[in-house]
């Protein structure tokens, strides 16, 4: 049995636009996964399909090895508050929080109360009138409060100031520590969110460009820089280390590539007057997004 959420041959097309292309992926249970990649690569679509807000063109989604739809109780195990979530026009913040426990059997009232307070959410305000940041805060309250087995967070920080984001990160870890569950979070603030993650998935143009534990993913990203001619010669001699992105400056060039380098490769790079530095995860995500490279 594969505990977690799996997608098998998942394809989603809108008209003749293919958003997700024959995706095979498993998000292991009980971990915090980062879902990364440029805009328009299918992150939100994937989350919508996994949480059954929309239906696949082809392929299937398995929850703990069982296909969606076999058991209606599966829906209660999922929580996905969309980035542009619609609420009843008349609902105030307190109404949303009052009915939420009906949808989420594991509702955590204590956490919810603390979060509303920390985010200074006004309970008597109509949700429609909340600011962008307040809407994000409400989505976070619902997502963490649900304690759903599979919780999806889609760029949960939009409109939140740095202080509120810190609060969110702290509360996410606190809530997850108290009750480990599968959390899948998309974010563009990669380096800020990376320490929260255990696993990383990078999507590029509807396909999986990389899936790896955080530390492996972080060790993958390298930059090589030095004299352009010797850099090019080194790259030609080492086809295992593709050039994902490239910038030149006078007679020198800088290339983002995939590591790790063996001792012999490091030695040959330094002999060629090349400087090897590690790149942040954000740099790797950006480079994969600009290169269409898939890590086998």
């Amino acid at each position: 049995m594969t505990a977690g959420i799996s997608v098998i041959g998942l394809t989603k097309t809108y008209g003749d636009h293919t958003v997700l292309d024959d995706l095979h992926l498993t998000f292991a249970a009980g971990k915090i996964h980062g879902l990364l990649g440029a805009n328009g690569t299918g992150k939100t679509t994937l989350m919508s399909l996994m949480s059954r807000h929309t239906f696949p063109t082809r392929g299937s989604v398995l929850l703990d090895d069982r296909e969606f739809g076999e058991d209606p109780r599966q829906a209660q195990r999922l929580c996905f508050v969309r980035e542009n979530q619609l609420y009843n026009d008349a609902f105030k913040v307190r109404d949303v929080l009052r009915i939420a426990p009906d949808f989420y059997p594991k509702w955590d009232a204590a956490t919810t109360t603390r979060l509303v307070d920390r985010f200074r959410l006004p309970p008597a305000t109509v949700v429609k009138k909340l600011s962008r940041g307040q809407r994000s805060a409400l989505a976070i309250v619902l997502a963490l409060g649900s304690r759903a087995d599979f919780t999806f967070l889609d760029e949960p920080y939009l409109g939140l100031d740095p202080g509120a984001r810190e609060t969110f990160y702290e509360e996410l870890i606190r809530s997850y520590g108290a009750q480990p569950r599968t959390i899948i979070m998309s974010t563009h603030l990669v380096d800020e969110a990376a320490p929260l993650l255990e696993e990383v998935v990078v999507l590029n143009q509807g396909r999986v460009a990389l899936q790896a534990p955080l530390e492996e993913a972080e060790a993958l990203a390298l930059t090589l820089s030095g004299p352009t001619t010797s850099l090019d010669r080194w790259l030609q001699e080492h086809p295992d280390h593709p050039s994902l992105t490239r910038r030149t400056l006078g007679p020198t060039a800088t290339v983002t590539t995939l590591g790790p380098l063996s001792d012999a490769e490091s030695a040959s790079a330094s002999q060629a007057q090349l400087r090897v530095t590690s790149t942040s995860l954000q740099g790797l995500v950006a480079a994969l997004g600009n290169s269409n490279h898939e890590v086998a």
Partner: peptide
């Protein structure tokens, strides 16, 4: 504990 460290440093408990 693992959870105390994780919450304090805002890092994944596995880390």
């Amino acid at each position: 504990s693992t959870n105390e460290l994780a919450a304090h440093h805002r890092i994944n408990p596995a880390t």
